[in-house]
Design a protein around this nucleic acid. Structure first.
Length: 555
DNA sequence: AAAAAAC
């Protein structure tokens, strides 16, 4: 592709809502980010023509590193100054590509973004078979996060990457992982990917299998820790390359005596949904992650963190602990106080039509739910509730409605969980009731509606839930029920919806921020959620009492 | 606050 063609393509894709941009910039403190962006917009409109002429003459393409080209030029005085000019022009182009794709980078010596997958082969020696597998999967050009994260990983840079739900993060780390490992080797695992749920691990695993088909990489997933202990133990032949796992299964292997797995050859440790895996506290993931970090003891280990939402905590940790960190943000990042909020629209969330629906009370939810079913809806639909118990209850309420409905949560057996996911993928299940288990990372093709039956407890949770629809540029819809009880949290979610460009009643965003005192009180005394049930009260009470008595009498 | 994560 020559410079002209690319310039044209980039020009067509450019859409800056200058009016909105101006308002936002005025409303919030203008930072260097705004300045650099305005500069790029200026370059795009004013300097574009001149730039085009110059690059056409030199035959420089976007796809190769300019420095190398410059080295090949003869270096008398005249050439030298034109070299400088070229270098400058090249930097402007790179800046513009980043601005147009909303790629924000932070760090030193950052490689240029790639604009095509082919560059991974020409510049970074990606196996041509992997490229073919990509084409077979119908993937033609990299998404913004892939454009920047892939060359970074190819240069062995440790990174913290934040990009919207459904914007291709999995591919953004799988491709460079395959490219960096070059070919299968018999020295034990060289790549490890950690996921917060088994469902996500298995999805990533299958994605890796598909990408590496015909290349011979041995990709593994720990599906049963006891079996895996034999497979990867000290006596094994080490014929494996990449491992995908949830934290505890891996730790189980590490804690055997002697350890049933050796991670000392790991070159890449990738933490998917990193803010989730950084969750602290007694039962949080953080300690588990720390154990895994320590086990990857090799001198060559590099680490990469990916998520749609990034907490200040993760960012801080990365700044302190990673080597020459680069952070990449696509659009703007939620959950970090250090970032300038509200400047961009989140591209993934742009593709989701988001609605808030007042249903009055707990009972109103069931009425509204039945109404949606009665009116007819376009399956598949994903329904989020807050607890396992409520997932069960809602399932029992809907199972007689004459629709194909099922339920998934961590209390179901692995077999049941796998079956449910498979049937939902194949379309056998129309309505799937779920807990936070499915909130992150899961890529169901063509979910038409995400229904938040229970109000999400945070904006972050909301973003991940509704991110199950509207993926990879497709259109999706999300409806969120709310009752009187949910009003304290309404403001933050209404703001997310408003930023995404969906209409929200003014009074909602006008709600006062809840004071930390009030918040604490709410945390101590969470509003008691009634159960989901249509059985008349008097029947319930009798049944409940009887059960309790029975329990007490039992020895 | 709940959910998730080993056998």
């Amino acid at each position: 592709m020559d410079a002209f063609e690319l310039f044209r393509k980039l020009g067509v894709g450019a859409k800056f809502d200058l009016k909105r941009f101006g308002q936002d910039a005025a409303r919030f403190k203008v930072s260097f980010i705004v300045c650099s962006l305005l500069f790029d917009v200026f370059c795009l409109t004013e300097a574009g023509g001149e730039l085009l002429k110059e690059t056409q003459g030199t035959g420089i393409t976007w796809t190769s590193s300019l420095d190398r080209k410059i080295q090949n030029l003869p270096s008398d005085g005249k050439e030298k100054s034109s070299m400088k000019r070229l270098k400058h022009l090249h930097q402007e182009k790179v800046n513009r590509i980043r601005a147009q794709n909303r790629i924000n980078v932070h760090g030193c010596d950052i490689p240029d973004p790639v604009c095509t997958f082919e560059e991974l082969q020409s510049e970074y020696r990606l196996n041509p078979r992997v490229l073919q597998n990509l084409r077979d999967a119908g993937l033609s050009s990299p998404t913004p996060i892939q454009m920047q994260a892939m060359p970074l990983m190819m240069h062995g840079r440790e990174l913290l990457a934040c990009a919207p739900t459904g914007s291709g993060k999995t591919l953004a780390f799988c491709l460079p992982l395959l490219a960096q490992l070059q070919q299968p080797a018999n020295q034990g695992f060289r790549g490890v990917i950690i996921s917060p749920t088994r469902e996500l691990a298995s999805q990533t695993y299958r994605e890796l299998l598909r990408l590496s088909e015909g290349v011979g990489f041995r990709v593994h997933i720990i599906d049963k820790a006891s079996l895996a202990a034999k497979k990867y133990g000290p006596r094994s032949n080490k014929k494996y390359d990449i491992l995908v796992s949830t934290p505890n299964r891996l730790i189980f292997l590490l804690k055997q005596d002697p350890p049933a797995i050796d991670l000392s050859s790991v070159e890449w440790l990738i933490v998917d949904e990193s803010d989730k895996l950084f969750e602290d506290g007694k039962t949080g993931f953080r300690e588990q992650l720390a154990t895994i970090f320590l086990a990857c003891s090799g001198p060559k280990v590099r680490r990469a963190f990916f998520s749609a939402t990034c907490t200040a905590d993760v960012e801080q940790w990365c700044r302190l602990n990673l080597d020459n960190l680069v952070s990449v943000n696509i659009g703007h990042r939620y959950g970090s106080k250090t970032w300038v909020f509200h400047l961009f629209r989140n591209t993934a969330v742009d593709t989701v039509d988001q609605q808030l629906l007042f249903v009055g009370t707990e009972n109103g939810k069931l009425v509204a739910m039945r109404d949606i079913i009665k009116k007819g809806f376009l399956p598949p639909m994903l329904v989020f509730v807050q607890t396992i118990e409520r997932a069960r209850e809602l399932f029992h309420e809907l199972v007689y409605e004459g629709i194909n409905v099922d339920v998934i949560h961590a209390d179901r057996t692995q077999q049941q969980r796998d079956n449910v996911v498979n049937s939902f993928r194949s379309g056998k299940i129309w309505v799937l009731i779920c807990t936070a288990l499915l909130a992150r990372g899961i890529d169901f093709k063509g979910v038409n509606l995400v229904l938040n039956y229970d109000f999400p407890t945070s904006a972050v949770e909301y973003i991940h839930r509704i991110g199950r629809t509207g993926r990879a540029g497709h259109q999706g819809k999300a409806v969120t029920f709310f009752t009187e009880n949910d009003k304290p949290l309404l403001r933050s979610i209404a703001n997310v919806i408003k930023q995404a460009g969906c209409p929200v009643p003014d009074y909602m965003v006008g709600f006062k921020k809840i004071h930390s005192k009030v918040k604490r009180r709410l945390e101590k005394k969470p509003p008691k959620r009634s159960t989901i049930c249509t059985t008349p009260r008097f029947l319930m009470k009798t049944k409940g009492k009887d059960q309790k008595k029975g329990n007490k009498r039992a020895p």
